[in-house]
Design a protein around this nucleic acid. Sequence first.
DNA 1: ATCTAGGGTCAGAAAATATGAGTCTCGCCA
DNA 2: TGGCGAGACTCATATTTTCTGACCCTAGAT
Lengths: 288, 288
Amino acid sequence: MAVAPPKPKDLSLTALRAFEAAARLGGFAAAAEELGVSPGAVTAHVKALEDRLGAMLFQRDAKGVRLTALGQRVLPALSEAFDHLAAASHHLQAEAAPQLVHIATLPAIAQFWLSPRLPELRRIAPEISVSITAMEAPPNLKRAPYDLCLFFGGTQGVALAEDVIFPVCAPSVAARVRSVADLANLPCLSDTAWSEDWALWLATAQPGAGITPRGPAYSLYALAVEEAVNGAGVLIGHEALVARHLAAGRLVAPFPGRATTGRSLRLWSAPPAGPAARRVMRWLTESA
Amino acid sequence: MAVAPPKPKDLSLTALRAFEAAARLGGFAAAAEELGVSPGAVTAHVKALEDRLGAMLFQRDAKGVRLTALGQRVLPALSEAFDHLAAASHHLQAEAAPQLVHIATLPAIAQFWLSPRLPELRRIAPEISVSITAMEAPPNLKRAPYDLCLFFGGTQGVALAEDVIFPVCAPSVAARVRSVADLANLPCLSDTAWSEDWALWLATAQPGAGITPRGPAYSLYALAVEEAVNGAGVLIGHEALVARHLAAGRLVAPFPGRATTGRSLRLWSAPPAGPAARRVMRWLTESA
DNA sequence: ATCTAGGGTCAGAAAATATGAGTCTCGCCA
DNA sequence: TGGCGAGACTCATATTTTCTGACCCTAGAT
């Protein structure tokens, strides 16, 4: 009774994932971002899924998309399923490479805080290998395959250090800086993502000074630091990130005033943290 | 602090699925069958996954594959995750098309039992649309998107009818059949998948007759039936499948003896059966 | 009015996935 | 002891899926 294979194919997993991400994040663009594809790809997936189902999942208007009733009904089960799948996949990777620890962090933290500590970690625990991925925002640990996260702000995990900020500059520049008022005549370097830093520091160190620092903003903190070291101006420094340069004398703090941003450098781990991840977490915590 | 996207991609869902199927079913060939792809595709997926992980998941030997310890450790979580995903996907399809009922069944049942009943069902419940997929063996309902299954044997669901077998043939052939002994001189048609039918019937209807029926075996029961109707010989008929031909007089039963195969025609549903599926199930049960 | 943030569309390109034929290695069996 | 058959592997090729990139469109915000 053999028959030729007229196979009724399942829904495409990729399309389901695109729908799930779009629904959960409330937009195709956000979903594209999370999935690491272009928005057009998400559009196409959702459309394909809708065509396949013969029903709309989103209501479109020019200002975005909203889930239809159908979409709302099926989203929870789908999200949960993908959570399970991501967890299983993460588990698989952890079991396959138990000595590999993936850390997600800001580029600046990676370069100025984490990287300098790694040689010592490698000396202490040579069997552990650490991989670092730099990103702008903490990943969704339910989905992304990282073992540890290291970012400013939030409330999860342990705080390694207060985020303390204060101006720093090359020694040659410091010689020309006598008072806070001098900042008005110097390039005041900053990071575009931390554009409030100067105002925050001024409010704390010299309230009512009436100074509006002006200067280039960099989209990569490392660039700003590099410029400061090269004498391009005064950088509003984050203690954890400029500590090494201060210790080495490549940068100095021309003013005594320090401000806290209210955030802290925090370290947390993905739920089923393996021995290696715990080991690295302990070491980083102690080293802070 | 924007950075270019050096994205650490997740494991391929397709590869994970191939691994899961191979592990669960105990072989690449079986997995290929379930996934509806060629064995080579499964081989490639598993290999890609192993390369990606840097660890072996299967131990190969010439007689098949066995899971490694690593594979055994991760399989349960993966299987569960794919079960959830399949359930969610099924749920989505059911919600999107609540009036569509997918039935999985044997080709012969589809043609000779189910199909004749559908016009009446359409008359009674025109809003329900039924889709039928023919297959050789009951699908894994945890994975395959069917609402109802209709097969011989098993213990699930409700029994619609005993599987009763007895010889049938065209009236013109019946005229030449006087006794069971005549079967030795006539083509005795059968289905390759039900090769024991003749022996079973003879053991019940004429024990010790010493007859070995000979004749063509068909890989599709419908072919055997067609041949019987055309007078090609005597077919060992399954009551549920030849009832219509008997009623119409195109086939007759030349002997009074009937045997039961010990199995029955059973109908069962996938766990979260919607209203339409339940309706169809009720109707089919009553119609039997 | 212009800008901006989202989506939609499309053609072409890239990557993933599948096939199919041919090998290889066993264990089974005559 | 040589022939099968099962099951898996390989490789070159084919197909399908998926992605991109550039463009358009709309509506609310500036």
